[in-house]
Amino acid sequence: MPHRKVGSSIHLSGQLPFKDGELLGQGVVGRDVELETAQELARHAALNCLAAAVQAVGDLDRVRIVQMLVFVASTPDFGEQSQVANAASELLIEVLGENGRHARTAIGVAGLPLNTPVEIQVICTAV
């Protein structure tokens, strides 16, 4: 299930950068994947979060993002996870305006499902 409602909060499952059923990238940021590519993948994962949120609340105009967790599969010396996450944050604010503003954590990890460079998890509410 792509989401779980708990009180007024909606917890979205981690979303990968899929488009039309195809994973858009694989590899590790800082080794196989450039920062700009990782940012584009983060935008796609954020769009998938919005799609899951719409499924949960029924209408994009009702979505308010509360928190976003961005997981970046990266080399130990890559320290720009926040720059990857910025691309997703900017997209959410661009699409939702004030309802897209959120708290955020960007985390570097050793690996992610399907060898994707980016996975995003969101907590939102319906307004």
Rank of each mutant, 00 (worst) to 15 (best):
F78R: 10
L41M: 06
R62C: 09
E98T: 00
P76V: 11
M68Y: 00
P76K: 11
V84G: 07
A87D: 07
F78Y: 05
V66H: 11
S82I: 15
A85W: 08
I65K: 00
L41K: 08
V84L: 06
R101D: 00
V57G: 03
A53N: 06
R64L: 05
T37M: 09
E98A: 02
V54K: 13
I65V: 11
A38C: 05
D77N: 14
C49V: 10
V54H: 01
A87Q: 05
A38N: 10
Q83I: 15
E90W: 06
H44T: 15
A73D: 00
L60Q: 13
A56W: 03
Q55L: 13
A85S: 07
E98W: 01
L50C: 07
S74W: 02
A85G: 06
F78K: 12
Q83Y: 06
S89Q: 11
T75S: 10
V29E: 10
V66N: 08
V95I: 10
Q81I: 01
N99H: 08
A38E: 04
N86M: 13
A45N: 02
A87K: 03
R64C: 02
G79R: 15
G27N: 00
N48L: 08
Q67G: 09
R101T: 12
Q55G: 14
A73G: 06
Q39T: 13
L47K: 11
A56R: 00
V57S: 05
A46S: 05
V63A: 00
L23E: 02
L50E: 02
L41P: 03
G27H: 02
L23R: 09
A103V: 02
G97D: 05
S74C: 15
H44Y: 15
L92C: 06
L96D: 02
D59K: 04
L24Q: 12
V72K: 13
A53L: 04
E34D: 15
V95E: 11
I65D: 00
R64Y: 00
R64G: 04
Q55H: 12
